[in-house]
Simulated scan of single mutants.
Amino acid sequence: MEQNPKFNKTIANEEELRSIIGFPSELVKRKVITYLDSHCVDFISKSPFLVISTSNNEGYCDVSPRGDAPGFVLVLDEKRLIIPERPGNRRIDSMRNILSNPRVGLLFIIPGMEETLRVNGKATLVKDEEILEKMKVKERKPLLGIGVEVEECFIHCAKAFKRSKLWESNSGASKEFLPVASSILSAHSKISKEDVDDILEESYTKRLY
């Protein structure tokens, strides 16, 4: 495989990009708000899953999933929400990025719903015990929280979900054809698949909270 392949015929500026893509409709231009209204709060309360995008001060990017029971993200007021940080793999990619560059993007997803909610803002790592206490699960508080000061929020259209047929029961591959995570991890880490299976089993059964 060629190393560092170059792309041909690339876009050089926004003017050229607009000549191909065009401009947003009046609805799209007007749909962005700068606070969490009752509709956004309701959406967040029904969402069991989000992805958070971050980058460090050098521009290196990361995107990471977060999930729990619907309503796991705590809305403090119309400008602030907080995401519980449950036990993970301790890479802390998102949190290290936030320490050097607080800008984040969130994408909230509700299973079965094709529209998503996007929230952009400025993040802070929170260790306030009073707040963390409100997000306890099975008598365990989150280790920390990612607090977000909301700067933009808006509904994203359903086209990606419609094209992918993500929520259609027959749209996915049969289970026997799905990638096996432990095989991938074994190949990448050079640790035996049996040991990886044991590590994942222990993590998924004993260290969710």
Rank of each mutant, 00 (worst) to 15 (best):
S53L: 08
M113E: 05
I92Y: 11
F177P: 00
L76F: 02
D68Y: 10
G88N: 06
N89Q: 11
V63W: 09
K122H: 00
E202W: 05
I44L: 11
S171F: 08
Y204M: 02
E194N: 03
R207L: 15
E194W: 02
I155A: 05
K122D: 07
E16V: 04
L178G: 00
V63T: 14
G59N: 12
S171V: 08
F49Y: 07
P24W: 12
N101F: 10
N57L: 07
I11W: 07
S47T: 07
E139R: 10
L144F: 15
L185A: 13
P24M: 12
E201K: 00
I52C: 14
F7H: 01
V41G: 04
E58M: 05
L36N: 09
F49A: 12
L76M: 10
E2S: 07
S164D: 11
S164E: 01
K31N: 10
L200I: 00
Y204T: 08
S45P: 00
V126H: 09
N101C: 11
R163L: 01
L50C: 06
L178T: 04
D93E: 14
E115F: 14
N89K: 09
I44K: 11
N170T: 10
K162A: 15
T116S: 06
R80E: 10
L50R: 02
K79T: 03
P142I: 10
K134Q: 11
M95R: 14
E149H: 13
S182M: 06
E16F: 02
E129N: 01
I82H: 04
G147P: 14
S38A: 04
I131P: 08
E14I: 11
K206C: 09
G105D: 09
E115R: 09
G172C: 02
L166N: 01
E130T: 02
V196G: 10
I92N: 02
S53E: 09
I155P: 02
E78G: 15
G121V: 02
I98R: 03
W167A: 08
G112V: 10
H39Y: 09
E85V: 15
S64P: 03
K31V: 06
W167E: 05
D68F: 06
N120S: 06
R30K: 13
V41S: 12
L99R: 05
T34K: 12
I146K: 03
N4Y: 04
S174W: 01
V126E: 09
E152N: 07
I131G: 05
V148C: 00
R103M: 10
K193R: 08
L178I: 03
V51W: 06
M1V: 02
P102L: 11
L50E: 03
R86T: 05
S47C: 05
P24S: 04
L106T: 03
P111N: 08
D68R: 06
E58A: 08
I52W: 02
L125P: 07
L208D: 04
Y209Q: 07
D198Q: 15
D198E: 04
V180K: 14
K138E: 08
F7G: 11
Y60K: 13
S38R: 06
S182G: 01
K31R: 15
E133Q: 08
